[in-house]
């Protein structure tokens, strides 16, 4: 297993042979043998699927730690099926991942349930750019160079005078939102705009403008109206924004992560 490049791809077949299926309650029939059987008793009454359900209630890091208990547990923790089951549980929250180096495939992952950071060395990837999605302990990486098998939508927009395209976009409920910046001249009222493009109906795009205040907040878009949901408290903002005024933010499920590039701070906001 030395030099293995992936976390999950361990051959579980090697360990399968020890999961003998026994009638879990066989020992109970004979009262007198109960003491003798006690040493193996517990393991016997716990078939794999039960153990899997118990382990699934653990925080992600503890699940993997449990894989070090014995071969059977390791096989359960490493199996594709249980990994899928673990990630759909409501007890888990999406993780946040950030690279700590632009050259090396290393970074930190943050578990908001335990409020803990984990240093993670990614398998070596020979590519210059990648996108990371980390959720509930599972990590998906799509690498530009190797990407295939996905549908690309290209929405062409008319040039909007005085505006330039940003490099951020998101697709949500079939609508693509594309961020644009004002090139100046129009005062400071409207420095950001959004282009909306409905992918399903291929409706003509519309332009939304928003003047943002000097604070970090979360707004939701109801139709064409912005509605403020939350604003980062001034106290937090002061410590957060003084190093750099560029932030990265991302959202998955009901968590929004905001990270300052210059400061070692991560803000987590839970919608609802």
């Amino acid at each position: 297993m030395e030099g293995e490049t992936s976390w999950f791809s361990h051959c579980i077949d090697n360990f399968k042979n020890d999961s003998v299926e026994l009638d879990p309650f066989l020992e109970l029939n004979d009262k007198s043998s109960e003491e003798v059987a006690d040493a193996v008793f517990v393991d016997l009454i716990l078939p794999n699927d039960l153990l899997e359900r118990i382990l699934a209630c653990l925080p992600v890091a503890s699940i993997f730690k449990a894989g070090c208990v014995c071969k059977r547990w390791h096989a359960i923790v490493s199996s594709d099926r249980s990994l899928q089951n673990f990630s759909i549980l409501p007890l888990q929250k999406p993780w946040y991942f950030m690279f700590t180096s632009s050259d090396e495939p290393v970074g930190y992952a943050y578990d908001s349930v335990l409020q803990k950071w984990y240093g993670i060395n990614l398998p070596y990837i020979e590519a210059s750019s990648w996108f990371i999605a980390l959720s509930c302990g599972a990590l998906a990486i799509s690498v530009n160079k190797l990407s295939h098998n996905y549908n690309a939508f290209i929405a062409k927009s008319k040039q909007v005078p005085g505006w330039q395209a940003g490099d951020e976009s998101v697709i949500c409920d079939g609508v693509m939102y594309f961020l644009i910046y004002s090139t100046g001249g129009g005062g400071t009222d409207n420095r950001h705009g959004l282009i909306l493009y409905n992918l399903t109906s291929q409706m003509p795009h519309s332009l939304l403008m928003k003047s943002f205040i000097s604070a970090i907040g979360i707004w939701s878009l109801n139709g064409k109206e912005w509605q403020e949901i939350a604003r980062v408290p001034h106290k937090l903002f002061n410590g957060f924004g003084e190093f750099d005024d560029v932030f990265a933010s991302s959202g998955t499920v009901d968590l929004i992560y905001i990270q300052s590039y210059g400061a070692p701070i991560l803000l987590v906001y839970e919608v609802n």
Binding site: D38, A39, V42, D43, V69, C70, K71, R72, H74
Partner: peptide, 8 residues
Amino acid sequence: MFNVENDF
């Protein structure tokens, strides 16, 4: 706790 033997 689980009376599991370390078979590694």
